[in-house]
Amino acid sequence: MKETNTLNKTTSNSTMIDQLMNDVDLGLSNKEKTLPSKYFYDKIGDALFVEIMHLPEYYVTRAEHEIFKNQSQEIIAALKLDPNYYFELIELGAGDGLKTKELLKELNDGNYNFDYMPVDISQNALDSLESDLNEKLPDVSIQTKQGDYFEVLQSLKENKKPKVILFLGSNIGNMDDDIAADFISKLSNSLQENDKVFLGVDLIKDAAIVLPAYDDSQGITAAFNLNLLTRINHDLDANFDLGSFEHRPEYKESDGIAKSYLVSTVKQSVYIGKLNKSFQFEKNEKILMEISRKYNDEILNTILSDTRFKIKTRITDSQKYFANYVLELK
């Protein structure tokens, strides 16, 4: 069994490197350079993001965790879960499962009949999550799947078992609105009647609250962004000089979209060995690393307009920084 698992992980890693090569080449060849935020999450990136989640400035995780910690029974009621009926609890982008563990404990204590299926692009995060749950909630059945969100859609369509999809942490906000609408539409078409989605979104707020969450005083978020350059250096034989880039976030409440950039502080050339290609940077040229869309009901309803979903319930934290929506098929 170990040999099979090792082979699967090696194949997965090889595929990931190929995807990384293609995505980096495409992103850095754009007129406005970009790098995909999904590659933040290697072993170092996972650890840095755990640090970010506990920073005083980073309200996002804290607000949603409050919802799960104080309103788990309300979540179960809103999802209309019944201990007598089996369902699969599938979490897209599970990470360390911090918030979900609150719900899993309530479901376990209530003798609900379910399998927990966390999906994440980081095998390291999945391994840590599985190990932690086996220790703390050994009666919970866990079946991990490594991959990104879009990769699981076909398998969902083929699976006819009752499902609850968790898409938390405002992960949908890392997509622009067109991509988010396309993803949610494909997700709705992959589900069956009575399947549900529990969607977590960050709400639009003043820049004085939002900007520090992406530019903390300890520089952890900057290190998190710069670590992607370290990963590219290591995995793709590149020569990014981290000292020649600085982290710079931007946000306007009127736009409702936070953007994280790495900015070249000098005119420079970066060579990526596995691509056998150099990329030129002007002084002050930006690489868009991540977008973090903030929402209200109007924006979310626009994204849902061409899908089979309708909003059934909205649950917020005490400060109304964050909201979790129950989406049901029309």
Rank of each mutant, 00 (worst) to 15 (best):
F309V: 05
Q192H: 12
K161C: 01
S170V: 11
I257A: 04
F279S: 08
N84P: 00
K252F: 15
L55Y: 00
L168R: 02
L89H: 03
F224C: 03
A63G: 03
K205W: 10
S278E: 15
G273N: 13
V140E: 03
S170D: 10
I272Y: 05
L107I: 00
Y325V: 05
L168P: 03
L275A: 05
S217H: 07
P118V: 07
Y271K: 14
S217Q: 13
F183M: 07
Q192C: 07
A77G: 00
L107N: 01
A207W: 04
S188R: 10
V119W: 00
A213R: 05
F279W: 12
N84A: 07
Q71F: 02
L137V: 11
I179W: 07
I179S: 15
N225I: 02
S254N: 15
Y295S: 13
A222N: 06
A180C: 11
N108S: 15
N324M: 08
L28G: 05
I165R: 02
L103T: 01
G200F: 05
Q268C: 02
D176C: 07
V60I: 10
E74V: 09
D132F: 13
A63Q: 02
E64A: 11
D306W: 04
A77L: 02
I90A: 01
A323M: 10
L262C: 07
A78E: 04
V140A: 05
T4C: 00
E88V: 02
L191K: 12
K69W: 00
E158D: 13
E285A: 01
D202M: 03
S269G: 04
V197L: 11
G243K: 05
E253M: 15
D202L: 02
Q146E: 09
Y295N: 09
T6G: 00
L26I: 04
V164Y: 01
L191H: 09
L203P: 08
K274Q: 14
K31W: 00
D109I: 03
E285C: 01
V266Q: 13
F198W: 08
F167L: 13
N22A: 13
D255M: 14
I299P: 09
A47S: 14
E130H: 14
Q123T: 13
I179A: 15
E253W: 15
K283R: 05
E66Y: 10
I220H: 02
G219M: 05
V24K: 04
E32M: 01
K274D: 13
Y85S: 10
E64G: 11
S155D: 11
Y59S: 01
L55A: 01
R308N: 14
Q319K: 15
F281E: 09
I220S: 05
S37P: 09
I179N: 14
S29M: 07
L226C: 03
I303N: 13
S131I: 11
L211A: 06
S305H: 14
K196R: 15
F281Y: 12
N324H: 13
E298M: 12
D23G: 03
N124Q: 12
T34M: 06
S128E: 10
Q146D: 00
D182W: 10
K310C: 11
E106Y: 06
N189F: 14
F114V: 03
Y59D: 02
E74P: 00
L48P: 02
I303F: 15
E193Q: 15
S170K: 11
K294P: 07
K283V: 01
M1I: 00
N108W: 03
K145Q: 07
E158A: 12
